[in-house]
Design a protein around this nucleic acid. Structure first.
Length: 565
RNA sequence: UGGGGGAUCGUCCAACGGCAGGACUGCGGACUUUGGAUCCGCCUAUGGAGGUUCGAAUCCUCCUCCCCCAGCCA
């Protein structure tokens, strides 16, 4: 059990497991599993499950398996298997030698099915899919028994064997459990155990012509791996009787315990694979790893540290009620982690040229800058300073409103780690646009301190025009305009909910020269702007591409926003 | 109208018959060579009605609202 100071109190699942352990259940062991279907990329919702399953195993001295739930060859691909393994590792978890596939158990599942047939608990049904649906009844009306329900064991065995041999086309027959067509739980109305599929499986190739359903393969897979606690999401609660039925009536070696918890919902975020796939397929994003996607690969590219995602999962806790967690909490965790670890740099997103009239032409100074005020061990670096600089365009206003503390005509501000400067002239083009500022600097304030003790209201970031690197910076923001994704109306176009400003690409940014040669994925802070990282895919040494991970908290932006409204 | 779940600050999670607490958000303030960080303060909650009890978020009864289930998907 987690005893870290500040760790959240144990959730109901950890309480159950602790009690089971104390009672000697499951032989005193704890074995969990994370069972993704390789039909899409992992997202932040999966991270919750990964952190739970691997976390619980670690805390109780057990282990956690990675098992691919690959029982539907029509949807699953090796590409997803590879991506999922990469993402789980990246998140910081290790399944050791315990990598499994449900398809590893197909033979065992088949044998168990034969056992069910022989004991009169399963039968081959030859109804069409439409007929099966009709026979199932409705939520309020009981179903009717299939006319094939009472086939002899011998006939069932013969048919099932020939299904395996590939003698029948898809849809001709299924194997069904013989349970209760009048059960108020629809999952118990003779659920389908096996269907015929003439599809190439990414691992078993063409060996199988029939494939087990999730409800049947999952409990058997769990039992075969000696899983003690099978944790899944709430919508499987109605399936638990079937999970237990399967283990009760097959020769499964043990009986794991299924426990359900509530899945994660995040504001401004779609989480279903169907909708994520739609975003990708309709070109609303550049791919599964687009930095706006809630996928782990997207977050990795966005610059979210895995430790931040783990901290987030710890913070949200585990419960059984529907929830909608605010995106702000995730961003808080990202900032908290990056504040501790990310080196500080200076970069100007929208450059405004500034000439220091009294600074000697041709002179260059190397000024010392702190790399991370939160981490003295990060040391310092040298940043070149010269007569011509770039400042952030947003940091100057000709006619400053109240509470705007930055540069304005006649006003003095500090340049971070450099000098106090005062704006003496504003140069405009014929259209009236500000093209350049003329300032003076005070040589006595080198390093940013005034010997006479006078104060300035603002400290601005800057780069030396002659030394700066040009970079492309991609400003990312939430993908959706709608806070509650559940409120999205089905059938309405995705476009109605997309934030048109979720990606703003800036191509003429100027960044300090120490960024030259930065490795893809390098995460840092541009002082006063936010946390950024070098793009994993598109950045090249001679053409930097930088992603904004998350902004810094910005009171001025908030004041502006409030004024707009 | 069948069955299965669930309702605690705006949000997420605690409190397991004994002072409703933490985090995020929001709002104020201190400090500041990042309007960052840090620190301090404030706001706001037990769905409703009964009952049991010295004492109820917690136990009982009834009601209301929300979510899930009619794939040969997982």
């Amino acid at each position: 059990m987690s005893t870290r100071p500040g760790a959240p109190p144990p959730d109901f699942i950890r309480q159950i497991i602790a009690a089971d352990l104390k009672a000697g259940k499951h032989g005193g062991r704890v074995i969990t599993r994370f069972p993704p279907e390789p039909n899409g990329y992992l997202h932040i919702g999966h991270a919750k499950s990964i952190c739970l399953n691997f976390g619980v195993a670690r805390e109780f001295g057990g282990r956690c398996h990675l098992r691919f739930d690959d029982t539907n060859p029509t949807k699953e691909e090796q590409e997803y298997v590879d991506a999922i393994m990469e993402d789980v590792r990246w998140l910081g978890f290790d399944w050791g030698e315990h990598l499994y596939y449900a398809s590893d158990y197909f033979e065992q599942c088949y044998d168990y099915a034969v056992h069910l047939i022989k004991t009169g608990r399963a039968y081959v049904c030859s109804l069409t899919p439409e007929e099966i649906r009709e026979y199932r009844g409705t939520l309020t009306a009981p179903g009717r028994e299939s006319p094939y329900r009472n086939r002899s064991v011998a006939e069932n065995l013969d048919l099932f064997t020939r299904m395996r041999a590939g003698e029948f086309p898809e849809g001709a027959h299924v194997l069904r459990a013989k349970i209760d067509m009048a059960s108020p739980n629809l999952n118990l109305r003779d659920p389908v155990l096996y269907r015929i599929l003439h599809a190439e499986h990414h691992r078993t190739g063409g060996r199988w012509r029939l494939y087990p359903m999730y409800d049947y393969a999952h409990p058997i897979s769990d039992a075969l791996e000696d899983i003690t606690h099978s944790l899944c999401t709430l919508e499987f609660e109605d399936h638990r009787p079937l999970y237990d039925w399967t283990l009760d009536y097959t020769p499964a070696p043990c009986h794991p315990q299924q426990i359900e918890f509530a899945r994660l919902n995040l504001t401004y975020t779609v989480m279903s694979k169907r909708r994520l796939l739609k975003l990708v397929n309709e070109g609303h994003v550049a791919g599964w790893d687009d930095p706006r996607m809630p996928t782990l690969s997207g977050m990795r590219r966005r610059g979210y540290p895995p430790a931040a995602i783990r901290a987030f999962c710890d913070t949200i806790g585990i419960g059984r009620r529907e929830n909608l967690v605010e995106l702000a909490l995730l961003e808080h965790c990202v900032r908290e982690e990056l504040n501790r670890t990310a080196p500080r740099l200076m970069g100007v997103l929208n450059p405004l040229k500034v000439v220091l009239l009294n600074y000697p032409e041709g002179q260059v100074e190397e000024l010392e800058a702190v790399n991370n005020p939160e981490d003295p061990a990060a040391g310092t670096r040298r940043v070149p300073f010269s007569r011509v600089l770039y400042l952030e365009r947003d940091d100057f206003l000709e006619d400053p409103p109240k509470k705007f503390f930055r540069l304005a005509p006649g006003r003095e501000v500090r340049l971070r780690y450099a000098y106090f400067i005062r704006c003496v002239d504003v140069v405009k083009d014929q259209a009236g646009q500000i093209v350049e500022l003329h300032c003076t600097y005070d040589p006595a304030t080198k390093g940013g301190h005034a010997p006479d003790g006078r104060k300035v209201q603002a400290t601005l970031h800057w780069v030396s025009a002659g030394h700066a690197l040009t970079a492309q910076v991609r400003l990312y923001d939430r993908l959706l305009t709608l806070a509650d994704p559940a409120a999205m109306e089905e059938g309405r176009d995705f476009g109605d909910y997309l934030n048109p400003d979720s990606l703003v690409t800036l191509t003429d940014c100027r960044v300090e020269p120490s960024l030259a040669g930065a490795a893809p994925g390098f995460a840092f802070q541009f002082e006063r702007l936010g946390y950024f990282c070098v793009d994993l895919k598109d950045s090249r040494p001679d053409a930097l591409v930088i992603n904004r991970t998350v902004t810094l908290k910005d009171p001025w932006a908030k004041i502006q926003k409030a004024r707009m409204e």
